[in-house]
Nucleic acid binder design. Sequence first.
RNA 1: UCCCCAGUAGCUCAAUCGGCAGAGCGGGUGGCUGUUAACCACUAGGUUCGCGGUUCAAGUCCGUGCUGGGGAGCCA
Length: 468
Amino acid sequence: MVWMKIKDAIKAEPGTRMTVKGWLRTRRDSKADGGLSFLVVSDGTCFDTLQVVARGDLPNYQEDIVRLTTGCSIEASGTLVESQGKGQNVELQADEISVLGWVDDPDSYPVQKKRQSFEYLREVAHLRPRTNTFGAVARVRHCLSMAVHRFFDERDFFYVHTPVITASDCEGAGEMFRVSTLDLLNLPLTDKGDIDFEQDFFGREARLTVSGQLSVETYCCALSRVYTFGPTFRAENSNTARHLSEFWMIEPETAFADLNDDADLAEEFLKYLIDELLTRRADDMKFFNQWIDKDKTLVQRLKGIIEAKFRRISYTEAVDVLGKAKKSFEFPVKWGVDLQSEHERYLTEEKFKQPVVVMDYPKEIKAFYMRQNDDGKTVAAMDVLVPRVGEIIGGSAREERLDVLDARLDELGLPKEDYWWYRDLRKYGTVPHAGFGLGFERMIQFCTSMANIRDVIPFPRAPRQADF
RNA sequence: UCCCCAGUAGCUCAAUCGGCAGAGCGGGUGGCUGUUAACCACUAGGUUCGCGGUUCAAGUCCGUGCUGGGGAGCCA
């Protein structure tokens, strides 16, 4: 008999003979017809479950079936039939059911069919994918990952694997985690009394990357269109629903492109991802719309985002809009200071009610590598802001003029020798180029309305949280 | 890291002024029914987050630590 995934089984013709395998969600018994049990089985291949009907005349009915509890794994063979009950179109009329794995202590099995809090389920991260919500998140995460690669592949971008361990201390995007094999209880010291990193594994200080951007720029300046998609690490003591210590980032980099090209790509990219998600994971998205999104308008909003052109405004215009807003802000707005969360939320949630691209920020509040505009005051940087999540993309045109880059490094007191290979790109056949970083988990949050970023990654890492 | 709130049974929560620790779900047992978060009865299940303090008496008040939530900063 053919083993079918439940995603296929529920669409098969009644009369089809099949075997299914999965985990029990619930068991309901009935005394009708001499006794029978309804087993709701999930194998995770889709949102829906399959109802398996176990009749009382199964040889192991009394011994096994009536002892089944939530979480047991089973294999069932039989015939797919139209369901006599409401709630499902088809069900499997089983003529053989074997228990693959019992739940040792049903009393304390952590995942119950009752609604459980996400905070609690985070403590049982090894079992939470068996729930509706976390199963759906996992499938959405996969779907978006595949769509990322499809999008770039279709547009002749090459996938570049940038390093996770880096010895360069110049990525400049935040606090970094140290990578070392030195014995913490017996650190080797130099004559001056400093830690002697020459004796460390890499012969120098090494850290986990905070961004693949600088690395991927090198391949951009050879292959024209590239992207990286991998884990990044921030040792910031951030305790919010939008930050992780380990998160995944997608960073495309395009040669012969300026900031407008960059914004075009970002917009096309986000719309593509949403479209793919709505098309391929309609089952899970229906669930998020109905049970996770507060207003039950998630799918409708996402469709609207695909339709409408993103609003693009300059930082200067944004400050102007905020200054004229009737709303009073906790932090006053003035040209030269970075936009606060409340400002970003106002722009994207209240003023424009759609994704907003803010461009051309004051150079003082942005990174050294961003390209200076002709006004001498701003750089060609952009942030893409979306409702409920805030900043989802940060990008810029990169400073390709060596003299301007060097002047900026000097201004910031950054040693040029640390950036030698980055500066080489500007010495040898420099070209205008631009790129951005999309926080993958924030994208999943945006697409699912999941409130906490720790619930859209399988095993979240955050300050004081590295279980599993 | 800062401000605010919370932590009680396996889970979700209640407990009035500081005065005997409670319910639903889940588990077990029995009953009923082509069931749908099934239903009915009985039953087991507690270091009230940890440490210290006030009090005749602390789940409740005070201090402190830890964990979680909301907001802020850092950012994606």
